[in-house]
Amino acid sequence: MTERVMRSWEWARPVRPVRREVLSAVPELEEGRPPLLFVPGFGHGAWAYAENWLGHVAARGFSAHAVSLRGHGGSDPAPEATLRAYAHDVVQVAAGLPRRAVLVGHGAGALVVAHAMARYPARAAVLVAPVLGGWATFGTAVRRNPLGTLPAVFGAGLRLNRKQLFSGELPDADARRHAARLGRAARRAQWQLLTGADPEPAVGEPPVLVLGSPDDRVVPASALTQAARRYGSAPLLFPGMGHDMMLDARWREPIDAILDWLVKDPSRDDRG
Rank of each mutant, 00 (worst) to 15 (best):
G196M: 01
G148I: 11
A234F: 01
V57N: 02
P27Y: 11
H243R: 14
A227Q: 09
V208Q: 07
L160V: 08
L209W: 07
A114P: 10
V113D: 04
R13P: 01
A221N: 05
A136T: 11
Q164A: 11
A136M: 08
M246H: 09
V5F: 10
R4M: 07
A129T: 15
L170Y: 03
Q92G: 15
A186H: 01
V208H: 08
A179C: 07
G168R: 07
P98R: 15
L158G: 02
G109C: 14
P239H: 06
R177I: 14
R119D: 13
H115T: 13
P266V: 08
A221K: 05
A228E: 13
R250V: 02
P151D: 08
H72D: 02
F38D: 03
D248F: 02
R159P: 03
A78G: 00
A108R: 15
E3G: 10
H72K: 00
P214S: 13
E30N: 01
A78C: 01
P40M: 11
E30F: 00
L193T: 15
Y86C: 02
L247T: 01
W191A: 04
A12F: 14
A234N: 03
V203M: 10
N52T: 01
R4V: 14
Y120K: 00
A173D: 15
A125Q: 10
L37P: 03
G240W: 00
S267I: 02
R7K: 07
